[in-house]
Nucleic acid binder design. Structure first.
Lengths: 233, 233
DNA sequence: TCAAAAGTGTTTTGGGTACACCCATGA
DNA sequence: TCATGGGTGTACCCAAAACACTTTTGA
């Protein structure tokens, strides 16, 4: 039973108030020239997660230390017999969240030249079953924000509560009440920690905002539920 | 890159107030004679989920229609290079929940003769990395009960609210307040539906209980949280 | 002095918890 | 008539929602 095993990555970031996903343009058959999720084959002596980090670094030119520190999470495994026209390929999909990067991520050499951040609503048809993987990943990210502290992964090392709220609003595509969001976040022990004395002007205008960094907590109890959910309209 | 792909199943049931998992005794090397989760190789023309159902039917002698209707959920994929001493094996793990079965499930021929329901606390060492898979699956089942309607999968087609509560209490290993549990369940639209006119005596003693069947809902909003969680003691 | 964004306070409301109590049945 | 389990009622509490309000900056 000769199976090939691959990994596929759905890497998200928030940039300019919109959710983006990292895509590469395929340089070879099949689906040559089409957009696809980054990924590749698992080699004989590595786990799927190791392969995911290796491929991400190779294909996108993201900084190695960033890739090593990245929060990677297994999404699920896709194993339909005909998902790859060449042969039988089983693919383990991962999701990752990164902060908006100073420069367009994908300026490395080789493969990396074909990597791009694409706003999720503007993503067109993708190679293989990657559209399904992307949809699953997007859904997962949305619900992860509800009951984990993962939203800080979308933020730079130090961030304002306004930026954190923008992450939620972008991923969920809803508006949140600022005072209530603030209270909720600060009331969850270990979600964020104040950076003593620091403040930053966010958009040039307005009052400078206090800076926070991620705290030690990973779970959110009680959860921070999406507004439209949990209600019976 | 010659990989073998397998499936492993963590099938749970509640029996006599205790959580049980379905195990088989291995009839061949490696780990011959040890207990293991049911599972087996994915064949070239089937998906992992199909393979899981097929293997479950073959190895345990569960009724085919029951296996076909079973709620199977992908847990995650285990891909450490040395998890199988023979060769490189990547395994897709699934969880399933079934109602307590009239007879000990495993009375079919062949492989099935070696299948047994084992109380989870009494499970000893398992073959391969199955102890890890079992622990992951158990954790997943516990949290699934919080925010999905899946608990009914542990119950027969018609059940009392007392039986449903016993499922929660068994899986979570906590006592729940009956009046509050009742209100909560009935207040969630589509979780359970009353079976008109029906009632059943549960243990010979006590008032006959009304019967319910699973409703159309799948998610639980708001969630039914475990007592110890969500509090800061 | 105005717009924009941060941050505080207050009222209301709904769900969860705890617990007291009644009902129907078998022994 | 008593133990057992099903079912109802109710008072309390806390956290979330809604919204009015103050503060600090750049233009």
């Amino acid at each position: 039973m000769p199976f090939a095993v691959t990994v596929d990555l759905a890497v998200f970031t928030v940039r300019g108030g919109r959710l983006h996903v990292l895509l590469i343009r395929r340089g070879q058959q099949p689906y040559e020239g089409d957009w696809a999720l980054p990924g590749g084959f698992v080699t004989p002596r590595e786990s799927a997660e190791s392969a995911a980090r290796r491929e991400l670094a190779e294909e996108t030119g993201l900084a190695p230390d960033l890739v090593a520190a990245l929060h990677l999470e297994q999404l699920r495994t896709y194993s339909e017999p005909d998902r790859d026209p060449r042969m039988r390929v089983v693919s383990v999909a991962f999701t990752a969240l990164v902060a908006d990067l100073p420069e367009p991520a994908a300026e490395g050499g080789g493969d990396a030249a074909h990597a791009r951040w694409v706003p999720v609503p503007e993503v067109g048809p993708l190679a293989f079953d990657h559209a399904v993987i992307l949809a699953d990943a997007r859904e997962r990210v949305g619900s992860k924000l509800e009951y984990t502290c993962l939203a800080t992964a979308f933020c730079p090392p130090q961030f304002t509560l306004g930026e954190l709220q923008a992450v939620y609003e972008t991923v969920w595509d809803t508006a949140l009440d600022r005072p209530n969001f603030r209270r909720k976040v600060l009331a969850t022990p270990g979600f964020v920690e104040a950076v003593p004395g620091a403040a930053r002007l966010t958009g040039g205008r307005g009052k400078p905002a206090a800076l926070y960094r991620p705290g030690p907590a990973t779970a959110l109890h009680p959860p921070l539920l999406r507004p439209s959910e949990g209600r019976t309209p």
